[in-house]
Design a protein around this nucleic acid. Structure first.
Length: 826
RNA sequence: GCGAGAGUGGUGGAACGGCAGACACGCUAGACUCAGGAUCUAGUGGGCAUUACGCCUGUGGGGGUUCAAAUCCCCCCUCUCGCACCA
């Protein structure tokens, strides 16, 4: 008997699929389905995480094609980014060369996995015909007032002379040279994502197809809080300190105010007071610390008096104004009111500096005494010490006090978000250039559409030190102002790569369009993505940015979609021995190894079988062996009967005169088909779908071992056909091979998903369980569909049951049709 | 601290409130073999039995609802992930 050799077979079918352009998107106007896996950064090698996400997507895509959908299933490359520049510096290879070589290598690996992508729609974000449209979209944002420049405090490495992202600051030092990171004010480009904060939050409710935890993470990230803005006039000045609070009901409990170190009033108001030097020293010390340090848990709360006092706008009381290291300039208005009695942080701060504690909210039936309090009382209660508001429940007082403030011109309701505008400038070469020209007369001017793309010059020099090579490239820098024709200077910063990945799923719908990023017709034909699949690590950044882009594109009339991804599957990690795979732990298993040793089908099967897709998966070499064995077992089974099956004709099948074994076999295989269909379609439970196929195979082996029933060719033909069809999405190469061996012409992947024969599932007899007081005391085989009365009758007429029930009082009898009988006796 | 999720055999994992442990790994035995780490068949939660198609027990712990709970409710423990001075 022939043995299955996956390597030759897989290569053969991959070649066949490619030569026949098999997986080109079918646009026959059938019901569409867009299945998408997050595109990779071309690092050069696929890892198991990639293999997992692509396998999941591929099973879905193949299944849905067989279900009759027009499926869009594309792949591309998130190809801009820092590693390419590091490679340039370290190995003197141009980022483009490095990137494209990596893409070729990874594409080869993807093809070796048998993934059914439409390669005609491949997109590469670093290709000029892609980033041309990234730039075009930037200008769309710019024209709509959603891209702007402002000074921002950024992490700065003095030795490398470059900006660092927050993630690139390790323990306060530069990740590359270890130098202590400072902060610096720089003019940078931002996208006004905060304009969309409310819609991004609100529309999370529409995303019922997303995992709850991802929605919650985004909700926290947007961080909406509702409260009031309150103005505190400064004594002896016309200045006011603006404060944001979620608890305006505690206004009469304010005993001090605190400004952020960066707050412009901190220097201004201390000037000329005895506190001036102390404040300056404190501010300098605080501002030297990076944001990372300042937000860390070990940060000790400190503050210093400014010498100024502010007046409570309702009580008229004057309270001291301090500067504190724990107040963030970037949130609210950079100043807070201190209510020690009703805020734990304020309580601790007040105790430390001997500031007074005044109770203004009292819990029902209890009196708080400031001198006895060991912690703040933050819950609801009734107001006191609050003049005309005394006696109001705190929840009502929030509105009442806010209204009063608004009437007096000292504030009003306000909503703030934790979300900040998106800083997109990067002082790097390998990204999409920001298409802006600076003109002394006109300011920042958009590069005209006809001049796009602003191409990255190839002839650049990379040096260690981090300075973007663009800023010293004379030909690139030089530009004429598009507005006035005068001399201009080109922007040398490039865009954050997250911009490139915020719209790529639109481009797939119309990948070759050279007049627009995509047409409305094509994007509306395919978008939104029906099923998006990727790692949880993108739960916030990529997914939030993409949602933002989609809403802006929608507002600009470029798409009908308001959300990009209808359903999201956050797949789990691939671990080994309970730990993340990593070189340092030496527990890495590469897809290449698995393909070389067992074939892609085995790897795919294992990765799907070992755990449900959203859970972490522990790699097991023995488990892989098991899957390999299973596929070989299927091969042997089909080989054994292939001749027999090929002889069958349609008429033979009609002539079936089924015996018990035949009925049982058909039932087993159709039951498996039913389960596989439901498991893929409704729940993505590929692990149980595969186990159902295994059961069908076991049933087929059992049938062949059946003595005396004969081997029924027509039934075997039907069952083996179904088996191969069921296997097709999971093990595409083996299924294709077996399909041919069974004598079918054409590809298994062009077949329709088979229908379950309901009559095959019918059973004549069922085994029911008889319980006494909830414990199983017997089993009976009875005709299916028996009435409850008849079931009970059967149960009582059983000798053993009768014996056990004899002489006891029957309290209750429950019968669940075709399942069980429970007799409650005493 | 807040939020989300999870705790089931030696292992990965199954179970619309209705026979816990499907399927697979591992292990044991048998068959086939010169031999097998190949293949096929059977067994396999734990304990007590083995005259039995037998009894007891069992889904992190403790309560509850129910004829019936891994599943629903309450309390507690442990683990994983996210957020964490956000005023």
């Amino acid at each position: 008997m022939t043995e299955y050799h996956p390597q030759q077979t897989e290569a053969k079918w991959q070649k066949y699929w490619q030569e026949n352009n098999f997986y080109r998107t079918d646009e026959q106007g059938r019901k569409k389905y867009y299945v998408l896996e997050m595109f990779p950064y071309p690092s050069g090698r696929l890892h198991m995480g990639h293999m997992r996400v692509y396998t999941i997507g591929d099973v879905l895509a193949r299944f849905l094609r067989m279900r009759g959908y027009s499926v869009l299933h594309p792949m591309g490359w998130d190809a801009f980014g820092l590693p390419a520049e590091n490679a340039a510096i370290e190995h003197h290879v141009h980022p483009a060369e490095w990137t494209y070589a990596n893409i070729e290598a990874m594409k080869k690996q993807q093809k070796a996995l048998g993934l059914s992508y439409d390669w005609d729609r491949e997109v590469t974000t670093c290709a000029p015909d892609y980033y041309r449209w990234t730039q075009w979209l930037f200008l769309l944002f710019f024209k709509r007032g959603l891209a702007y420049r402002k000074k921002a405090t950024v992490n700065w490495c003095p030795r490398c002379e470059t900006v660092l992202a927050n993630e690139q600051v390790e323990a306060g030092g530069c990740w590359r040279c270890g130098e202590e990171v400072a902060t610096k004010e720089l003019e940078q480009w931002f996208l006004r994502i905060t304009d969309y904060a409310e819609r991004l939050l609100e529309d999370l409710k529409l995303l019922s197809g997303w995992p709850e935890r991802v929605r919650v993470m985004q909700e926290n990230w947007i961080g909406k809080s509702t409260g009031a803005q309150i103005s505190f006039p400064v004594r002896g000045s016309d200045r006011r300190v603006e404060v944001f609070t979620t608890r305006p009901d505690t206004l009469f409990g304010v005993t001090y105010l605190v400004l952020a170190a960066e707050h412009p009033l901190s220097a201004e108001l201390s000037r000329g007071t005895p506190q001036e030097d102390a404040v300056r020293a404190f501010v300098e010390r605080t501002r030297k610390l990076s944001e990372v340090t300042r937000v860390s848990a070990e940060m000790v709360k400190e503050g210093v008096f400014t010498g100024a006092f502010c007046r409570n706008p309702l009580s008229g009381e004057e309270v001291p104004l301090l500067v504190g290291n724990y107040v963030l300039m970037g949130y609210g208005s950079g100043a807070v009111m201190g209510v020690p009695a009703h805020d734990q942080r304020d309580f601790e701060f007040a105790k430390k500096y001997g500031l007074p504690v005044r109770v203004v909210i009292t819990p029902a039936g209890r009196l708080l005494r400031p001198e006895e309090m060991t912690e703040a009382y933050e819950d609801e209660g009734v107001l006191l010490n609050s003049e005309r508001f005394d006696g109001l429940p705190s929840t009502e007082a929030r509105d009442a006090i806010t209204v009063r403030l608004a009437e007096n011109g000292f504030g009003g309701p306000r909503v703030t978000y934790r979300l900040r505008d998106w800083l997109i400038s990067r002082q790097r070469y390998w990204g999409a250039p920001i298409p802006i020209i600076y003109c002394a007369a006109c300011g920042p001017v958009a590069v005209p559409e006809k001049d796009l793309p602003v191409e990255l010059p190839r002839d650049v020099i990379f040096q260690p030190g981090g300075q973007s090579p663009l800023s010293s490239h004379a030909a690139f820098l030089q530009a004429k102002c598009p507005a006035c024709g005068g001399p201009g200077r080109r922007e040398t910063d490039t865009m954050d790569t997250f911009i490139c990945s915020s719209w790529y799923y639109f481009r797939y719908a119309d990948a070759k369009n050279d007049r627009a990023p995509f047409s409305l017709a094509q994007s509306d034909a395919w978008l939104p993505v029906d099923q998006y699949i990727g790692g949880i690590e993108h739960a916030i950044l990529h997914l939030l940015y993409s949602r933002f882009f989609t809403k802006v594109l929608h507002d600009a009339g470029l798409t009908g979609a308001t959300e990009p991804f209808t359903r999201l599957l956050a797949q789990g990690m691939v671990n080994k021995d309970g730990a993340k795979m990593s070189k340092s732990k030496g527990n890495v298993v590469s897809p290449d190894e698995i393909i070389a040793r067992y074939g892609a089908d085995t790897g795919r099967l294992f990765i799907l079988f070992a755990a449900p897709p959203e859970k972490d998966l522990d790699w097991s070499d023995r488990g892989v062996e098991g899957c390999s064995r299973f596929l070989k077992r299927v091969f042997r089974l089909v080989e054994r009967y292939a001749d027999l099956v090929r002889e069958q004709t349609g008429e033979d099948r009609l002539a079936v005169e089924p015996g018990a074994a035949v009925t049982d076999l058909r039932r087993a295989v159709h039951a498996a088909l039913k389960k596989v269909t439901e498991d893929i379609e409704e729940r993505f439970n590929f692990n149980t779908a595969i186990s159902a196929i295994m059961e069908a195979v076991n049933a087929l082996y059992g049938y062949s071992a059946e003595k005396g029933d004969g081997v029924h060719g027509a039934v075997l033909a039907e069952c083996l056909e179904l088996l191969v069809l069921m296997l097709a999405p999971f093990a595409p190469h083996l299924a294709e091979e077996l399909w041919g061996r069974l004598g079918f012409t054409g590809s298994v992947h062009l077949q329709s998903w088979p229908a379950v024969d309901a009559s095959a599932l019918a059973v004549a007899d069922v085994e029911i369980v008889v319980q006494i007081n909830g414990k199983v005391r017997g089993r009976l085989t009875v005709p299916a569909g028996l009435t409850q009365e008849a079931m009970l009758e059967q149960a009582f007429s059983d000798n053993r049951i009768a014996l056990l029930v004899a002489g006891r009082e029957l309290l209750k009898a429950v019968a669940v049709p075709d399942k069980l009988v429970n007799l409650v006796v005493r």
